[in-house]
């Protein structure tokens, strides 16, 4: 009897601890997002998006160059990274299906996707910034693209694997060549998954700072030239948050708020869509 009692108490004790850890995790999430929303939302106004940087101490500036720069750098990364990831994933799931090489590349791609992003930055610095002789928005995009490719590759591989093999055979049986089967049948069947994969890849890189520190660098002026250094939202947040001025801190919170809301929404919406589409 006492033994049973002891076991029951132990049971409740550990289940409580496990529940507490779960709430600890939730607590951190709520605390971080809460602070971000309180500090960030209160600093949001239209000037943030239309005004250029103000000189230190003069307050009242906006983050327009950073927003535009972020958009340019991320879109360029998208244009480079998504097609490569998509095609690479297609090779692994289609032409290379079941081959040892494809499996190896798929594994290597997972590893490549987890390489510290700052290392990617140093690599691009050595290969692009050094050779061209100057920092540029384009080199930043390239660094982000390298981070993006493995993400898109993996999603493509998974999504194409979900398309029933028989569907491809049905197309082959009508005399369709493989490339038409891929572009007309397989991609179309997996379109929702591929689209959300692309969105998730963007969400993955949109908040990256480290790989931009010594590639796209920074720019105190508004610039649209991708061969020159360019301000990005994330590097600007870093610079402003580490700076000594209160106005800067406010702007950093506001920028962080915008970028986090964007990333969380993109993540949540794509997860919701994928869950609904592939529930069965």
């Amino acid at each position: 009897m006492t033994n049973l009692k002891k076991r029951k108490i132990t049971n409740i004790f550990f289940l409580t601890i496990s529940t507490l850890t779960a709430f600890l995790g939730l607590f951190w999430l709520v605390m971080i997002l809460g602070d971000l929303f309180i500090q960030g939302a209160s600093s949001i106004n239209w000037k943030l998006f239309v005004d250029d940087f103000a000189p230190p101490g003069f307050g009242d500036g906006g983050l327009r160059p950073a927003f535009v720069g972020q958009l340019i750098i991320v879109s360029t990364a998208f244009i480079i990274g998504i097609p490569i990831g998509l095609l690479g994933g297609t090779f692994i799931a289609e032409y290379g299906r079941n081959s040892k090489t494809a499996k190896l590349i798929s594994t290597l791609s997972d590893l490549a996707g987890s390489i510290p992003s700052i290392v990617v930055g140093t690599f691009i610095y050595a290969v692009i910034v050094r050779t061209t002789g100057h920092f540029s928005a384009f080199s930043g995009s390239l660094a982000l693209a390298l981070i993006m490719i493995p993400v898109m590759l993996k999603t493509t591989e998974n999504m194409l694997n979900l398309v029933p093999w028989q569907l491809r055979e049905a197309a082959f049986a009508l005399g369709a060549p493989y490339y038409k089967v891929i572009f007309q049948i397989v991609y179309k069947s997996a379109s929702v998954g591929l689209l959300t994969g692309a969105v998730l890849s963007v969400a993955r890189i949109a908040g990256e700072t480290a790989p931009l520190l010594f590639t796209s660098l920074n720019n105190t002026f508004f610039s649209l030239n991708i061969t020159k250094p360019m301000a990005s939202l994330t590097v600007t947040i870093y610079r402003y948050a580490m700076g000594p001025y209160n106005d800067w801190h406010k702007l950093a919170w506001a920028g962080s708020f915008v970028i986090t809301v964007f990333i969380l929404l993109a993540t949540l919406i794509s997860r919701f869509i994928v869950n609904r589409r592939y529930k069965n």
Binding site: P164, Q166, L167, E169, A170, A171, I185, K188, S191
Partner: peptide, 9 residues
């Protein structure tokens, strides 16, 4: 084939 294979169109 065994199970119907309508293309996504």
């Amino acid at each position: 084939f065994q199970s119907p294979t309508p293309f996504p169109m």
